[in-house]
Simulated scan of single mutants.
Amino acid sequence: MAAARLLLEGRVSLLSFMLGLSVLLLPLVPGLEPLLGGTTGRLALAIYIAGLNGLLLLLYRALLYQVAVRACFLGFAFGCGLLISFSQSHWKHFGWYICSLSFFHYSEYLITAITNPKSLSLDSFLLNHSLEYTLAAISSWLEFTIENFVYPEMKRITWLAAIGLVMVLIGESLRKAAMLTAGSNFNHIVQNEKSNTHILVTSGVYSWFRHPSYVGWFYWSIGTQVLLCNPICIVGYAAASWRFFRERIEEEEFTLIHFFGEQYLDYKRRVPTGLPFIKGFKVEP
C-alpha cells in the first residue's frame, strides 16, 4: 500500500511538471507574443500561474498537492528557461541555467520515486537542501545580474557558457546514472543503520568512482557558474563544494566501513573517490 501511494506521487509529479511546462504554449496564443515583455504580458503570465495553481487545488489535496505544486513550479521554470534560451535576450545563458537548475531538482524527485520509493518525500526535491545552498544560489543570481549591467560583454562569451553547459550535462548524467545503478541503496541522507536489503554497489559507474553521485553533483555545480560566466562564483562554488563533499565522503565512508568491513576497504583501495585531492576516510594501518 505504501509503495503504491509513493508511486502515485511520482506519477502526479510528472503530470504536474508537464503542466508547468505548458508555459511554452503562451507565445503561440494569437496576439500575445509581442506583449509578453510588457505589462500586459506580465499580467497574462500572472493569470496563467494563478490558473495552474487553481487547477492543482481542484485535482489534489494534502500531500499530493504539495508534490504537484513543487513539480509544476519546476516545470514552469524549465519552460521559462527554454523561452529565454531561444530568445535574443542578453539573458540567454541565464535561461540555460534556469533549465539546468529546475531539471536537476525535479529529476532528483522523479528518480527517487522510480528507484527508492520508500525514501521518497518532499525533501527529495532538494529545494530545501540547506541555508548555504540557498545563499550560494542567490549569490550567483546577484553576480550575474550585476555583471550583466556593468560588463555585459562578459555574459556573452558563448564558448565559455557552452563549456559550462557540457559540464552541467555530464555532471547531471553521471549523478542520475549513479542513482539508477544504486537503486534502493541510494539515499539523500547518510544512513546510520544498515537495512536488510542494503548491499555494496561496485558495478557500472561505481566501478569508475566510489562516489559517482557526488562527482556528478560537484562538476554540475561548478558547471552552472561557468555557464553563467560568473568568475567569483566559479571559485566560490568550487571551494565550497569541495569542502562539503570532502566532509560528506569522510562521514559516509566511516559508516560504509562499519557496514561492510573488509569488503568496502578492498573496494576503497581499488577505486578512487573521483573528486580531486579527496581520499576519503583515513584508515589507520
Rank of each mutant, 00 (worst) to 15 (best):
E262L: 06
G171M: 05
Y237Q: 15
P231F: 11
G261V: 02
I189F: 11
M167Y: 04
G183I: 07
G164L: 10
H211D: 03
P212N: 10
Q191G: 05
G236H: 08
H188D: 07
S241W: 03
L256W: 02
A182T: 01
V201E: 11
G223C: 09
W217T: 02
I234L: 12
R175L: 00
F218G: 05
A182V: 01
L180G: 01
F254Y: 10
V226T: 12
A238V: 02
W208G: 00
I232N: 08
G261F: 11
T224N: 14
S173Q: 01
L256D: 00
A178C: 14
Y206S: 01
H188M: 10
Q191S: 10
S173M: 07
Y219L: 15
V205S: 03
M167V: 04
E250P: 11
G236D: 13
V168D: 12
L227C: 06
I249N: 00
H198D: 14
S213Y: 03
H211F: 07
G171P: 08
Y237G: 07
T224F: 04
A240W: 08
W217E: 04
S184G: 09
W220Y: 13
L200S: 05
A178M: 07
I257L: 03
P231C: 10
E252A: 06
N196D: 15
I232C: 10
T224E: 07
A238K: 06
Q225E: 14
K194T: 00
A240I: 11
I222Q: 07
V201I: 15
T181A: 11
F259C: 03
F254V: 02
G171R: 10
W220K: 01
I170H: 05
M167T: 02
Y206I: 00
G204L: 15
P231Q: 05
S241C: 13
I249Q: 08
F218L: 08
V166D: 08
E251Q: 08
L228H: 00
I222C: 03
E193A: 15
I257D: 02
H258N: 12
Y214I: 06
Y219I: 12
N230S: 13
E250A: 14
F245D: 00
V166I: 15
I257Q: 03
V215S: 09
V190D: 01
L227V: 07
F254S: 02
S207Y: 09
L174P: 00
T197R: 12
S184D: 03
G223N: 12
G261Q: 05
L180S: 00
V201L: 11
E253P: 15
L165A: 12
S241K: 05
G236Y: 13
H258M: 06
Q191I: 12
F244R: 06
L174T: 15
L228Q: 05
R175V: 00
E251T: 07
L169G: 11
L165V: 01
L174Q: 05
S173P: 00
E172R: 10
M167P: 00
I257G: 02
